[in-house]
Design a protein around this nucleic acid. Structure first.
Lengths: 344, 344
DNA sequence: TTGAAAGCGTTACCAG
DNA sequence: CTGGTAACGCTTTCAA
């Protein structure tokens, strides 16, 4: 189990072994094999195999000033939701011959450091997947100004500087409200996340719009705003409070699927049935949701990742193109807990 | 929104601007600033700032033959469970000054290619987080033999070649059985994954051991083996079948937490109560499980990641050390669905 | 078609 | 303490 650190086999070793020049080997590596005698090609390939040669991306990167590496910064890597973007991004990157340097950015300082590191690593491009916490963007402007294009996912930067893909939180909630109204609900409650989050504001906006479009007056008592990260107990209590209202809601929209699960438990705890007596709709469409039969708003995170990396590729090949903004719709996934299946 | 590709600011530009030699600037970059006049140091730092200089990791990597980059290969990146390893790995890597190159390996061919790419990128070390599908390891042996140490997480390679961290699936299930027996259960069913998976075999082994230790005869009718990836319908049906038995189980162990959620729904569907009439225990401890009050076996994935990267660091600094195998215990997380809280 | 040599941006060694 | 300079492994003109 001793690991030696053998001397690296280099292109010149191969050249020597094959009795050709370095440039010729280089051409083989880069597939410029069109105008080459079959025999030399074979000889070189044999030598590479024989010596177990692996070209060095590092040396190549230095020579070409291009690393074939992309940076991916995630804020809150632990949120399974945002990880959904990683799969398609990794796939597309690899397909296009790029590798992915992954960095987590728990906070602003972290993010700045990540950007600096990625710049030193000379990535060819950078993607940032954000939670909807407000953050500064000056470091992103700077790295882009220095030649490394940046694509944003879910950061909703208002400037036109960056390629970016977002999803339409407001529209998603409006969809839910409309669906619930169509099912006959008039008293629709909503539990939202921290009010300084963009996503919270957008969702409330969508909620209001949905009600307004259906001529339903807004009742402040039906809006509970709280902290996502609060213990489940807070959500449970919010639910019980809502149920104790003189005119309790007949439907509840949760700030995410986990909250929805907690709400459902709390409802069942009081002996009420979901969805027969109260409908519940989540937001997220997490992997477990389909197994719980949870109706929910799907956030197209994977699709956003896919489109973002495409934007980035375009930008890498054409640095001076205009930045594009893509806004993805959020589909409503109808399962059991909204009651549509029975009602239908 | 035009991005220029400016000429790179190099160490020699800085040297020139500061009126010193390249080596001196290099020393500053590398913190070898002890024996240097305050004034030159200040001048150099000013120049770096002024020119907005960023050292090139690529050039440094070439010169030092060390990239400060680690490879991380995930099999099935989409499984939230295994992603739990990424957070601590990324944190520890960054703390130690390393970056992380992430690759997904959907299958063997993919994995081989990933290893090859990482070798070309000249990573200083490599971690592989596996599902428990059986896989070949020859490519891992090879890259390690060429000087890039490899640490395995959940691959349970039997050879002594690799540093590796695993968790004890068998022990986890034995723990569950013992706990259930202590609560008075004698007819304990188990739903397992595909029988060719190592984890399935280990869990069944733990199940048998748990029963044996308590003098309970094994009933084949209480063991349902199936495909994880099957539709929820299959699990639901398995559950209903179990309940329809002349002597139905009073407790069910699920192959993972999502399956447990489905089982619980199926049970409730028949009008039975969990855990009052039937106890259910999952395996995984997924993020949502605590919100469902699901009792479950925790798989210490994050801890495994943490320990694996430490092993890798040790090995990087001392290539010829003996490979270490770490086997982590799986704690039983007692929440609501096993009935312990009421019974207690 | 193939070969020689000049970079690419750093580090590290060896003189002064 | 600082400065020259030879690597590091590859790409890319430019000649032959």
């Amino acid at each position: 189990m001793v690991i030696k650190r053998p001397n690296r086999v280099t292109i010149s070793n191969v050249a020597q072994a094959a009795g050709v020049s370095i440039s010729t080997v280089s051409n083989v590596i880069n597939g410029k094999t069109a105008a080459m005698s079959e025999e030399t090609l074979a000889r070189i390939q044999a030598a590479m195999l024989e010596l177990n040669y692996h070209p060095s991306s590092v040396a190549r990167g230095l020579a070409m000033q291009r690393t074939a590496t992309l940076g991916l910064i995630l804020t809150e890597i632990e949120t399974p939701l945002f990880l959904q973007a990683v799969t398609p991004i990794e796939r597309e990157a690899r397909r296009a011959g790029y590798s992915l340097l992954l960095m987590n950015a728990r906070n602003e300082a972290d993010e700045r450091e990540a950007v600096r590191l990625l710049q030193e690593k000379q990535v060819d491009g950078l993607m940032v997947v954000s939670t909807s916490d407000p953050r500064q963007n000056d470091h992103l402007h700077k790295i882009q100004a220095e030649g490394i294009p940046v694509a944003l996912i879910n950061r909703a930067d208002l400037s036109a500087e960056f390629d970016q893909v977002n999803w339409d939180n407001a529209q998603g909630v409006t969809l839910v409200v409309e669906h619930l109204v169509r099912l006959g609900h008039r008293r629709i409650a909503i539990l939202t996340g921290p009010s300084d989050r963009r996503s919270t504001q957008e969702r409330l906006q969508g909620y209001r719009l949905g009600l307004a479009q259906n001529g339903i007056a807004l009742r402040e008592t039906l809006i509970h705003s709280g902290d996502y990260t609060a213990a489940a107990e807070a959500w449970r209590q919010s639910t019980l409070d809502l149920l104790a209202l003189p005119e309790p809601p007949t439907a509840i929209i949760a700030s995410d699927d986990i909250v929805a699960a907690v709400i459902i438990r709390a409802i069942q705890e009081t002996g009420r049935k979901v969805p027969a007596e109260i409908a519940v709709v989540g937001i997220d469409d997490q992997p477990f949701s389909q197994y719980l039969g949870l109706s929910t708003v799907q956030l197209p995170v994977a699709e956003a990742g896919r489109q973002a990396i495409q934007l980035l590729f375009q930008r890498i090949t054409s640095l001076s193109a205009n930045a594009q903004h893509i806004l993805l719709p959020c589909p409503l996934i109808i399962r059991d807990t909204c009651g549509a299946k029975k009602a239908g």
